[in-house]
């Protein structure tokens, strides 16, 4: 059984992003999804700091400190791209204009609750940024994460123990073991890596699972 590495996970998410979609990729791991979008598929990336039509990183020496992404890294603007202020940017999210957002997570519940902003650890300085707006605003919210913590605990849970980012907002979870749909009916397995069975996956994930319709 070969778990997907982070590149393979990003490539797997990219497969599910259709032509014409308006997409916001969260900071960290989700940003890598952009590298795997096929060149012949026109997908329009939004960045919370006021840009649509975000392109890849500039060539060395071409960086512009006024042209950055949500992670404050230099980016480029594609032909057709646009700049706008912060209230418009978040209206795009909250108003349901963004088709898909992809976020990282500490935990996701089988009902689609998301925890990804704060661990409540002693001494941790809380920071939320745009996570709460993105999570509940996009038409579909995807999570991309390793299924297990470094300590081996499942991050797909019955109910989040970390502080919530949003309630019932995640629809699909891409992990290194499997792809899950989550929602009011609980978690179902869309696909899993070779060599894994539903029973074995359920043992690893520690939550009740069923096969999604059409999965197998």
């Amino acid at each position: 059984m070969n778990r997907l590495d982070r590149k393979a996970m990003a490539a797997r998410v990219a497969r599910d992003i259709p032509e014409g979609a308006y997409v916001n990729l969260g900071i960290g791991l989700p940003t890598r999804v952009a590298d795997f979008l096929p060149l012949d598929r026109e997908v329009i990336l939004q960045s919370e700091n006021g840009l649509l039509g975000m392109g890849p990183a500039p060539a060395p020496g071409e960086e512009d400190p006024d042209l950055i992404n949500a992670g404050k890294e230099p980016v480029t603007l594609l032909a057709g791209g646009a700049f706008f202020h912060h209230a418009d940017s978040f209206a795009m999210m909250r108003g349901g204009h963004i088709d898909i957002c992809v976020l990282g997570a500490f935990q996701v519940s089988v009902h689609g609750d998301l925890a990804n902003w704060h661990t409540d650890a002693p001494g941790a300085i809380p920071a939320v940024g745009g996570a709460m707006d993105l999570a509940i605003g996009a038409k579909r919210t995807f999570v991309m994460m390793e299924l297990l913590t470094r300590g081996g605990a499942s991050k797909l849970v019955e109910s989040c123990s970390y502080p919530l980012t949003g309630l019932a907002c995640v629809s699909r979870v891409y992990t290194d073991h499997a792809v899950f749909d989550v929602g009011p009916q609980g978690a179902s397995v869309v696909e899993m890596i070779d060599g894994l069975t539903l029973d074995a996956l359920q043992d690893i994930a520690g939550v009740p699972l069923r096969l999604a319709v059409g999965a197998g």
């Binding site: 978040f90 999210m93 001494g123 707006d133």
Partner: peptide, 18 residues
């Protein structure tokens, strides 16, 4: 912040803008 010399009010970014 750790020295308790500054007060923090944390606001989600879109709520801050709105």
């Amino acid at each position: 912040y750790r020295a308790d010399e500054i007060e923090l009010e944390l606001v989600p970014q879109g709520n801050l803008a709105a």
